[in-house]
């Protein structure tokens, strides 16, 4: 069983202590690191303590807000120019200055070698619609309460085909298309076409390609 930690009381006490220390002038909010508090909240948050944690989170945010306010006051209260001049007049070591530069360096990102046309073409290629990969889904077997009865045709295929042969015998010889003239239904045309193909295969009916004529 997973054991859920609950640090809400502990964090709440910590925040209260910080406020008390700040009031006494023992510590400045600017000197305090608040990240561990938020990390503790984040790392131990779970469904069972979410209500308690949301209240502690509000307190922690208030603390952060106060820290920002203190920082803002600090920047506003400073007469930067004079203080900076004073600092330089204090003749700081070169090493000390270099330390100030640390973590302030920026590495610029340049695309000097890529032309605008190249990027435009890349953008067109990237935004082109792609065909999603085909996903093969297995069919689900559905349960049917009633007994499923597969209806079989009353006549066998051969019988039907022979009946068809008898009906067209009177027409033959005739053109291939004229066999289907009297049929208006696409399904019927398809059915009779299949019979005709079989009849051609077993040579009951013959076909002359040059004249497009069916004959026996």
């Amino acid at each position: 069983m997973i054991e859920f930690k609950d640090l809400s009381d502990e964090i709440k006490d910590k925040i209260r202590e910080i406020y008390e220390d700040v009031k006494r002038g023992k510590v400045s909010l600017l000197d305090l690191e608040l990240v561990p508090i938020f990390n503790d909240l984040k790392n131990t948050l779970n469904t069972s303590n979410i209500d308690k944690y949301s209240k502690v989170y509000i307190d922690a945010c208030e603390l952060l807000k106060d820290k920002f306010k203190e920082f803002q006051d600090l920047l506003n209260s400073m007469e930067d120019e004079k203080k900076f001049d004073l600092y330089l007049k204090s003749n700081p070591d070169d090493k000390e200055i270099i330390e100030l530069f640390n973590e302030c360096w920026i590495k610029t990102f340049q695309l000097q070698s890529l032309s605008y046309d190249f990027l435009e073409q890349s953008q067109i290629k990237l935004s082109r619609d792609r065909i999603p990969p085909i996903v093969i889904e297995h069919l689900k077997r559905e349960k049917v309460k009633e007994n499923f009865i597969l209806e079989l045709p009353t006549q066998k295929f051969t019988d039907k085909m022979n009946d068809f042969l008898e009906t067209i015998k009177k027409k033959l010889p005739c053109s291939f298309n004229s066999i289907f003239d009297s049929m208006g239904n696409q399904i019927e045309i398809y059915e009779k076409f299949v019979y005709l193909l079989h009849l051609l295969q077993i040579k009951e009916v013959k076909y002359k390609h040059e004249t497009d004529i069916l004959y026996i």
Binding site: L30, L74, L75, D80, F84, E103
Partner: peptide, 8 residues
């Protein structure tokens, strides 16, 4: 950032 660091 440099000025902020210096201020602090």
């Amino acid at each position: 950032k440099l000025f902020t660091k210096l201020s602090l």
